[in-house]
């Protein structure tokens, strides 16, 4: 691969990247700024949690699959059991994913969770149970996405390895077969 490519390469899906960051940043910004300017807990709660929920939805359903080609969801099968599904694109498409996109995706995911943890520690120190509730909801949402996509990634890796070993095995056996057929 061309070593200069990462610098030249630009975001493949700037719109998705924008929304991926927008709701995270606006939830955090609203929470931090409103603590300074607005003295109404209800407004702070509703707007912050709504923004965090929108972010959760965007990451889980839109930017996850467009930026890194992964998606997770839960489904209840016919037996009434809950099944967590982890989906990924095939290897070829995963390889074609934009590097900058996925870099942005993962780092903003982690940074948001860290920021909420820091805010949670602040509200713990100031003994504000109600603000802790807001931060708790937002933190839960962002950690849910981190866990989901990390599992997705592991699953994708497993599938690739599984298929690779399968391919090698079948190749080996076919080589043997052809060797025997020649004999």
């Amino acid at each position: 691969m061309d070593p200069n490519q990462p610098e030249v390469e630009n975001y493949a899906n700037p719109k998705t990247c924008f929304f991926h960051v927008l709701f995270k940043a606006s939830a955090l910004a609203f929470y931090i700024l409103s603590a300074l300017f607005i003295d109404n807990f209800v407004i702070i709660f509703v707007v912050t949690v709504l923004l965090a929920a929108l972010d959760f939805w965007v990451v889980k359903n839109v930017s996850g699959r467009i930026l890194v080609g992964l998606r997770w969801w839960n489904e209840i099968n016919d037996l009434g059991e809950s099944v967590w599904k982890f989906e990924c694109l095939d290897h070829e498409s995963l390889a074609r994913m934009n590097k900058k996109d996925s870099w942005l995706f993962w780092w903003t995911l982690y940074i948001t969770a860290v920021a909420w943890i820091v805010l949670a520690i602040f509200s713990l120190i100031r003994l504000q149970a109600d603000y802790l509730l807001v931060v708790g909801v937002c933190l839960t949402l962002s950690i849910a996405n981190i866990v989901g996509f990390t599992k997705c990634k592991k699953d994708a890796k497993k599938q690739i390895q599984q298929f690779a070993s399968q391919t090698i095995a079948s190749r080996f056996s076919s080589t043997l077969q052809s060797a025997f057929s020649v004999v």
């Binding site: 498409s93 298929f163 690779a164």
Partner: peptide, 10 residues
């Protein structure tokens, strides 16, 4: 269903 990854180990 999922298009399963196709090729060599990454």
């Amino acid at each position: 269903s999922i298009p399963v990854s196709v090729s060599a180990p990454s």
